[in-house]
């Protein structure tokens, strides 16, 4: 079982994900350079946060054309587990693996702080360790986290349980004040219909060890490891 962390020029959470995979999960993990054409040998993929290609043009819009993305799409289509965090989420929407798009934060400023999140769906295997309605606390750090999707798309996502996480207050209420970036319906994380591709703006790798102030992100990583140990997908 081996986790591949896709490294784009400008990725800056690549080492953080590698640290969690190796040190916290005690799993094998390695970087996959964006110019690779294959992801063979890996059982799950992580697209880490950062500023791929400096976020020039639009977040994720250039990385989406990196050679490796063809292989990532094939891997996802075959049911492989793909996790996109922050810039990785943006790349997955640009690549069409996840619905919607991420615009500039409504305040037009970068936001770094802890955010409360309510679990809306446990359809995705990444959410196996959480309960529906559970309130989590994770760090956010982004300038372009304002999730948008058309009304029909939103309905479809809702019907299929694709809305995974929503920003809320500490009591679990999804108030406008709890929304850090203007996302429609306070959406913080979504998955594809099959659930194997999951993207979120908060950083589960920054809350997987107690000394960093919380461990609510650990479940995402543990799910990744346990699912793979049970039934690895190789493409």
């Amino acid at each position: 079982m081996k986790i591949g962390i896709v490294q784009f020029p400008g990725s800056n959470c690549d080492y953080d994900c590698l640290h969690v995979a190796r040190t916290v999960l005690q799993q094998q993990a390695a970087f996959i350079w964006h110019q690779e054409h294959s992801v063979s040998g890996y059982d799950a993929l992580v697209l880490p946060g950062g500023f791929s290609y400096g976020d020039y043009l639009r977040s994720g819009s250039i990385a989406r054309f990196s050679p490796v993305m063809g292989a990532v799409i094939k891997f996802a289509d075959a049911g492989g587990l793909v996790l996109g965090i922050c810039n990785g989420f943006q790349i997955l929407t640009e690549a069409g693996l996840l619905p919607g798009a991420l615009l500039k934060n409504s305040a037009l400023e970068f936001r770094c702080r802890w955010a409360h999140l309510r679990v809306e769906s446990t359809l995705s295997p990444f959410m196996a360790g959480y309960d529906h309605g559970q309130v989590l606390r994770m760090p956010i750090a982004h300038g372009d986290g304002n999730f948008v999707a058309g009304p029909e798309e939103l309905n479809r996502m809702h019907d299929h349980g694709q809305i995974v996480l929503r920003y809320c207050d500490e009591h679990g209420d999804t108030t406008p004040a709890a929304n850090p970036n203007g996302s429609v319906d306070n959406i913080a994380g979504v998955c594809n219909e099959a659930g194997n591709v999951f993207g979120l703006m908060p950083h589960p790798e920054r809350c997987a060890e107690p000394e960093l102030g919380g461990v609510d992100g650990l479940g995402v990583w543990r799910a990744l490891a346990s699912v793979l140990e049970a039934e690895p997908v190789r493409v």
Partner: peptide
Amino acid sequence: VFQQYDYSVQVNTV
């Protein structure tokens, strides 16, 4: 001011 700076990247910020 400081919420405009990413202060938790690199997972060292205690």
